[in-house]
């Protein structure tokens, strides 16, 4: 991944320097030719949507946030009292089920985006509702799981393991909650035609966010739940 990214970037850089060295006064009006957009036109220099650029930047930034929380957990995952560690607490079949629910919601999100792109707002709204519902289900599962852990004696302040576990999954849960609020608000705004700007794009933006929350869970589920089985 990063390999091709580096070669690509270097290639671009070489071209840019070449272009620059050739003649700095050359009248080139094909702005940002290195990644001229699909849409052409000239009201943005790359022909890309501002909002979508912003969303991807935000998601890039979020990688560092979750990376920090995951690293904290990785450092502290073994620091707990004898009988309140992951091996005693995890209920893999249950968490697998809720994970599956969340992954499924990504699929319905894709369907919603594609419906919105076809301007099929009716179906888009239906799929968005299903997505929100599945998200809610996942969240309910997480809350249930937390209460089970709590009843077994694992509080937020019990150990380093518990603090970092609840912080990481809690942050993810908050992201899911925000996603659900965005989905519900979007459904409402679509119904009342109050989306300022483009409907399909709004759906796509929420979709990008939702998928990101989903892929973060893929990592969390693997490195926090499944990995404990190596021992």
């Amino acid at each position: 991944m990063s390999d091709s990214l580096i070669t690509e970037t270097v290639k671009d850089a070489v071209e840019i320097v070449k272009d620059h060295a050739d003649d700095v006064h050359v009248h080139d009006v094909h702005a940002g030719d290195d990644h001229s957009g699909d849409h052409g036109g000239h009201h943005t220099s790359l022909g890309l949507s501002n909002t979508k650029l912003a969303m991807w930047l935000f998601l890039g930034s979020e990688c560092l946030l979750f990376g920090g929380l995951i690293s904290t957990y990785m450092l502290y995952r073994n620091r707990h009292s004898e009988n309140l560690g992951p091996d005693q607490l995890w209920d893999i079949p249950f968490t697998s089920a809720t994970s599956f629910v969340l992954l499924t919601s990504s699929l319905t999100m894709v369907l919603a985006v594609s419906a919105a792109n076809r301007k099929d707002l009716r179906n888009a709204k239906i799929y968005l509702s299903v997505t929100a519902l599945l998200g809610g289900l996942f969240l309910a599962g997480q809350i249930y799981e937390f209460t089970v852990f709590y009843r077994e004696g694992l509080g937020f302040t019990t150990s380093l393991f518990s603090s970092s576990f609840f912080t990481l999954t809690g942050f993810h849960g908050v992201h899911v909650s925000i996603g659900i609020i965005m989905l519900v608000a979007l459904i409402g705004m679509l119904s009342k035609e109050k989306v300022s700007g483009d409907d399909a794009e709004a759906v796509e933006m929420v979709g990008l966010y939702w998928h990101f929350v989903d892929i973060v869970w893929i990592i969390i589920f693997t490195v926090i739940y499944l990995i404990e089985f190596i021992k």
Binding site: D28, V29, A31, D33, D34, S45, A54, L57
Partner: peptide
């Protein structure tokens, strides 16, 4: 800072006047 960063990055990438490539 974060909000400002996203805003300004998009501005630089996407709001340049015609003819202004990144290297100009």
């Amino acid at each position: 800072s974060l909000v400002g960063a996203i805003n300004l990055i998009v501005t630089v990438l996407n709001m340049r006047a015609p003819g202004m490539s990144m290297m100009k």
